[in-house]
Each structure stands twice: as structure tokens, then as C-alpha cells.
Computed example of a mutant assay.
Amino acid sequence: MTLKNIPANMNGYKLMITEAPAMKMRENENGVAEPVTDRQGVNQFVVSLFAKRRPGPGEFAEKGEEIKVTLTADPGEGFEEGTYVQLVDATMSHWQNERNGRFSSGISFRANGLTPAA
């Protein structure tokens, strides 16, 4: 069973851009980079964020982690490195694969866009 498109509530996290949004690229079978699109042919984008949980009163500030988020549309201008943002309609999906007898799995993040943090 693969869990897909689970709503992700990121309200309790500070999200800072560590790599500005860019068109998502993938190497084809010939080793040539080409844009990633959805089933309707719409270009996908990717942004790297540093996610750190906001501590509550009296809580210890935990370490954060860098995540990559696929964006379903061009987020537009104004989202540079160091900008704090919120994700629009964020979801996460479990993935797994096997190559050459080695198994790997993880969580991928997706959002419909970015907005500046309040």
C-alpha cells in the first residue's frame, strides 16, 4: 500500500528558502535534462526549504531539516534564498523503489504554491 497526497499541516514550522524555486528537471534515457511536467503537460517547479519546528513556551528548539518541495505551478517572483514562506495546500506522499537489489524509500512533499510568511 502506498500512501499518496496526505494533507501536510506545516503551520507549526518556520520554512526558509535555501534554494530559490526553479523548474524541475530530470534526465531522460539519453542523459539529456528535460523539464518535468504533470499529466496535463504543466511544468513543475522545485524549491528547497529549511523546516524548523516552532517551539512552544518552555520547549527546547529542535534541530531543523532541509526538504525539497515540488510546486505544481510557477510560484512567481519574490521568493529568493532567505525568504520565509508558507506552503499552499501542502501534501506528502510515501515512495519506495528498488534498483540493482537495493531498496530505498522516503517521503516526498508537494504544494500548489508559496506565499510569504505572515
Rank of each mutant, 00 (worst) to 15 (best):
M1D: 14
T2W: 01
T2R: 04
K4G: 06
N5C: 09
N5S: 14
N5H: 14
I6Q: 00
I6T: 00
A8R: 05
N9M: 03
N9V: 01
N9Q: 01
M10Q: 10
N11C: 01
G12Y: 02
G12H: 01
Y13M: 11
M16T: 12
M16C: 13
M16W: 10
I17N: 02
I17L: 04
T18A: 15
T18D: 13
E19I: 13
A20D: 10
A20P: 09
A20F: 07
A20M: 10
P21V: 03
P21S: 01
P21Q: 03
A22F: 08
A22R: 11
A22V: 09
K24P: 13
K24A: 15
M25N: 11
M25D: 13
R26W: 05
E27Q: 09
E27V: 03
N28L: 02
N28E: 00
N28F: 01
N28P: 02
N30V: 01
G31Q: 07
G31S: 13
E34Y: 05
E34W: 06
P35W: 05
P35Q: 04
V36M: 08
V36P: 06
T37F: 02
T37N: 02
T37E: 05
D38C: 14
D38F: 13
Q40W: 13
Q40E: 15
G41L: 06
V42K: 12
V42R: 08
Q44C: 13
F45N: 04
F45L: 03
V47Y: 05
V47T: 05
S48I: 13
S48H: 12
L49Y: 14
L49V: 14
L49P: 14
F50L: 15
A51R: 11
K52F: 01
R53G: 04
R53Y: 02
R54K: 10
R54L: 07
P55C: 14
P55S: 15
P55D: 14
P57F: 15
G58F: 14
F60N: 10
F60Q: 08
F60I: 09
E62T: 03
E62C: 00
K63R: 13
K63I: 15
G64H: 02
G64I: 02
E65A: 03
E66R: 04
I67H: 06
V69M: 09
V69T: 07
V69S: 08
L71T: 00
A73Q: 10
G76R: 09
G76A: 08
E77K: 06
G78F: 10
G78W: 05
G78Q: 08
G78K: 09
F79W: 09
F79I: 12
E81I: 04
E81L: 00
E81N: 04
E81G: 04
G82H: 07
G82Y: 03
Y84K: 08
V85M: 08
V85C: 06
V85L: 11
Q86A: 02
L87F: 15
D89N: 05
A90N: 04
A90W: 02
M92K: 07
M92R: 04
S93T: 01
S93A: 00
H94R: 08
W95L: 11
W95N: 07
Q96R: 12
E98Q: 05
R99Q: 10
R99H: 12
N100D: 10
G101R: 01
G101I: 00
S105F: 09
S105H: 11
G106I: 00
G106A: 01
S108A: 10
S108D: 11
S108M: 06
F109N: 07
R110Q: 00
N112V: 12
G113Y: 01
L114Y: 02
T115S: 11
A118Q: 11
A118I: 06
